[in-house]
Design a protein around this nucleic acid. Structure first.
Lengths: 290, 290
DNA sequence: CGCTGATTTGAATTAGATCAACGATGGTGG
DNA sequence: CCACCATCGTTGATCTAATTCAAATCAGCG
């Protein structure tokens, strides 16, 4: 397979010509590169392993590349409520979520805080760039459940990106996934009524954190994380009380249901997202327009 | 300089080992790579040119890499109001703005539309990923002024990323810049009062499109694009009328001024952004708290 | 058991969307 | 050049929806 030869060639050439100048700045990297080359070779000679890698998530491929390059990464475990980083902390690393749920939130107005992103089991967070070394985090990240997180220094990622094209693609993919999610939240915030925003939020939470009750494609979906009304409110720019009232409304419409352990069940995801679009269900059956 | 040797080595190795397998799929690419290698070498031997390149914007470096690789890119000019792509169009390309102002907007609820991004003279737009080839655009993009735009097929970018590490960094940088902007807009949308959201919006528009009146660091800033109240309203999830009233309020507070040609002048950018944070200026001098 | 924090409900208040009307502006076509 | 029309900016009145304030219930936890 040319894949094998290609990887070997590019890794070696980087090593010989470019890595050399890095050696005095980053002792140990030259060795790491040799290791990387060897690992790459060994991995791709095992046909089955290579095949499985193709179906791996981009993030896993990226992290594996880091390991293979022997770059030091810090994996850490957090418990419920633990702070991963606070606003103002140096933004010199990116964080990759391996398992658990993490949320990032922005503080503003001195006492208000707003959840800006919610990640589960995968995804990158931290200031999403590779250059802003000197800057500081704009938001706070905390674990909502037990979580395993890998912190990678941006300089290490930049180094890897320059040498490993697969890693570049993986990182780009991680960035764009986050972009997609941000856009989705943005769309939700544009709705005027609280109930609409809430419906939209629950709808996308269902898509991302949902667990289907049955194998039924359109059946009920349970949102698998416990969220307080306060947290929901923080995501849709509203208040606890308003969320509480909106929940009643959605329950009356039989769009959702709240289980004993506070988890939310979307009874009819499709109708819920329609509700979010239309602002409400005032006109139930008016498909014909114009 | 090792830079020169490194580039040559990595380009050639890609060509020999990896490029070979691409040839039958993409005729002409092998030749492109030779050209790229040559251009790279020639460019970096000219000391001054290499120096200038370092200070080039990442986007320019990226586009230059594309040219150097001989990849076909489509540059197009648009006039005021022209549509660059519509929602639903195939999302197989990314668009790089060279000059002019472009806005992207989302339509929802059948007749409402919301501006999701505003770009000037540079920046990437279109669905920001390299993989979603089969998908379609979720938003519409249109030129607000005369604009020059380069459309690049995602497949070409992916191809380039795999071979040119500099391009990867440039693309990552472009993505993260958009991410930053999206986050900023997100933060603005979270404020409750229209006047606050408007102040926040004008504040960031000032940073991005502003022109200082004097060399004074904190002096007035003029927003260099003409925006109607309707367009402002579309960015902060509000209405023309509400924007009109909020503008009066900001004018009374002497935070902004509207010039004859409708351009908005931020009289005190710092105070304006404070206004956005606090929700208002009710307490003018209450720095001590607790 | 008495905390604390989450949820729920209600009443009062206010912000903003909606509706309507008018002058100003700017572009179009005769 | 002017009549015409569409859009823009502005203002006021009205009405809905959401925030705010207040208070009661409930749940988990040390």
């Amino acid at each position: 397979m040319e894949n094998f030869a290609g990887r070997l060639a590019s890794l070696l050439s980087s090593l010989v010509f470019r890595g050399a100048s890095e050696v005095h700045r980053r002792p140990g990297f030259a060795v790491a590169l040799y290791v990387a080359a060897l690992c790459g070779v060994l991995a791709s000679t095992s046909g089955k392993g290579a095949g499985r890698r193709m179906s791996e998530s981009p993030q896993n491929r990226l992290l594996r590349s880091l390991e293979e390059a022997g770059l030091r990464t810090v994996q850490r475990r957090y418990r419920v409520g633990d702070e991963i980083y606070a606003a103002g902390a140096p933004a010199d690393s990116l964080y990759f979520l391996l398992s658990g749920v993490v949320r990032t939130c922005k503080n503003y107005g001195d006492l208000k805080e707003a959840t800006t992103a919610l990640l589960k089991d995968e995804g990158v967070f931290g200031a999403l760039d590779l250059d802003g070394e000197g800057e500081s985090q704009q938001e706070t990240a905390e674990a909502l459940t037990e979580a395993r997180v890998v912190a990678v220094r941006k300089s290490a990622l930049a180094w890897l990106v320059k040498r490993n094209p697969e890693a570049s693609l993986a990182l780009l993919s991680a960035f764009s996934e986050r972009g997609r999610q941000a856009e989705e939240l943005h769309g939700i915030l544009l709705r005027r009524e609280v109930a609409s925003r809430l419906a939209g939020l629950l709808s996308t939470l269902g898509e991302r954190f949902g667990r289907r009750e049955a194998e039924d494609e359109f059946g009920p979906v349970t949102i698998d994380i416990g969220l307080t009304h306060r947290q929901l409110a923080d995501m849709i720019a509203s208040t606890r009380e308003a969320v509480s009232k909106a929940m009643v409304e959605l329950r009356c419409e039989e769009l959702i249901e709240v289980r004993g352990d506070r988890k939310i069940v979307l009874l009819d995801p499709a109708a819920l997202s329609r509700y979010a679009e239309d602002g409400s269900l005032r006109r139930k059956s008016q498909p014909a327009r114009g």
